[in-house]
Design a protein around this nucleic acid. Structure first.
Lengths: 163, 163
DNA sequence: CGCGCTGAGTTCGCTTGACGAACTCACTCG
DNA sequence: CGAGTGAGTTCGTCAAGCGAACTCAGCGCG
């Protein structure tokens, strides 16, 4: 009766969502990627309640995705801004994937509200699913999931979802 | 004062999260990719309250990511199971990206709890950020975001975040 | 020096959402 | 007919999100 015999509690998707799955967290990171770093700018651009935003920023700093960097604007006292760490930067593909899906399925007016270009050559950037042998996969159907712990005996689902 | 001059309200990340950003939604999809299709199985495997699970499934069906398919197991009445549509299947890269991040930053015991293999050649599967010219990018730093609407005048952030 | 301004929170009621247990309903099998 | 089961629904409780109001520190200005 146990499905495909592996431990969901240590699933990496669930773990990642425990870190960035709360409301506003991924949007804060999107803004960080766009260069918005100050509390007031984040608050204005996102429209999130200040209390929630404070909490999300604290969580993201505590988890090591953002770090607080002191700065000093002219005519102002010292404050700190929020910058992405490597750990935060590495979430970029996830945001790109979510954005790509939204571009495809949610845009009435035909085109993506934000395009991504290769800094060096200017060409459009997208995500690709590839294997170590260099093949490009067309989607989920080409992937076979294998649990790290060998399935005890039951094998309900052998792999990717059928049509 | 306006950051990088584009309309956040139509951001594709926000739009996508409005569809799958609620608690449990992405985990339901993860299970769907693993082949779990029946309500009871989802409920047992995820541990989500039935009421919440019902609501998420209804939302995902209404949004066209899942569809209800009637089936008839032996000795049971007719029921329906939940299957991914193309729209749902296309969210796969997002789940892979979240999983990859979790594998990298959340696993103490070294390795990923679930591996992905190319169905044809058996090699490990991963996501790559590539441009239309064929270059493989190393990360967010290699990307320059360009709003579809030309920035009116202000240009606060010219591109990817500095270190 | 005292005053008002501003960015960054914090506090406070209120509403929404998640939770787990109990209840319902429709069938099917014995 | 009666027990069993999958798929919900209902309910009371508790946590989270919300907007508005309040606080606090440091700065420029007079």
């Amino acid at each position: 009766m146990d499905e495909s015999g592996w431990d969901r509690s240590r699933c990496s998707v669930a773990g990642t969502l425990a870190v960035v799955g709360e409301k506003w967290s991924l949007l804060v990171l999107r803004e960080a990627f766009l260069g918005v770093r100050r509390f007031a700018d984040l608050q204005r651009v996102l429209g999130a309640p200040r209390a929630v935003l404070t909490d999300r920023l604290n969580t993201l700093v505590a988890e090591g995705l953002l770090r607080r960097v002191p700065y000093r604007a002219e005519g102002e006292r010292q404050r700190h801004e929020y910058r992405l760490t490597q750990k935060g930067l590495d979430l970029y593909p996830a945001l790109v994937a979510l954005m790509a899906w939204g571009d495809r399925y949610l845009s009435e007016d035909g085109e993506a509200p934000l395009g991504l270009r290769h800094r060096d050559c200017g060409e459009r950037v997208h995500l690709a699913l590839v294997c170590d042998a260099g093949h490009e996969l067309s989607g989920a159907r080409d992937v076979r999931p294998v649990p790290a712990v060998q399935p005890p005996a039951a094998a309900v689902s052998g792999g990717a979802p059928p049509r």
